[in-house]
Amino acid sequence: MSVAHRPTDETLAAFATGQLDEGLALVVATHLERDAASRERVRDFQSAQGALLDAAVPVAMVGGAGDVLARDPDAAPVGKADHVPEIGLPRVLQPYALGPWRPIGIKIAMRRVDVPGAEARVFMLRAGPGVALPHHKHSGLEWTTILSGAYEHQYGRFAAGDFDEADAEHEHTPRVDAIEGCTCIAAVTGNILFQGWLGRLLQPLVRL
């Protein structure tokens, strides 16, 4: 199994600089946790950031080294995430609260990921083998990382670890793998506009 679809350089650079919306960043991070090649590209950007820091023009500090240590003489190391991680979930989800799985249709279930302060809404989606997700388009972005199984639409087949970066121009009808089904995590900005009867059923639910 190898990853075939990766984020663009623009997206990875925005992730590396910390400028991405936290919901979108979390879906990128889920891909990065699974893909060493994309992690390497992020490290290239971080290395460039280090080079720019070394070359930065210094601006005089008000406080000095002594002040900083005096303020916090024996500061304890920063603690880890405070709750027990759920087995089988991506590790990058550990800091976040997740809702329960809720069925939203036949062989489709959804689970909310609570990302405080994010503009994008984040959720996990689990669909049974062969399910056709309703045809939809977006008014904003829809970024998805596949956690297990696969789906396919006119832009290709997306399997575990793949990253699907759809924007407002995309309009698609993903079809879930006939044998494995599919579990993914998605971040969505703006609205998803569904078509068809199932779409109309889903519309109020994805507003979360």
Partner: peptide, 24 residues
């Protein structure tokens, strides 16, 4: 510095993004 800038800029919203970077 990047992680702290995020923590401080997104302090009110209890951002967890810097923890995500640390996990990675």
């Amino acid at each position: 510095a990047r992680n702290l800038r995020i923590d401080i800029a997104r302090r009110e919203t209890r951002s967890r993004l810097s923890q995500v970077y640390e996990i990675l």
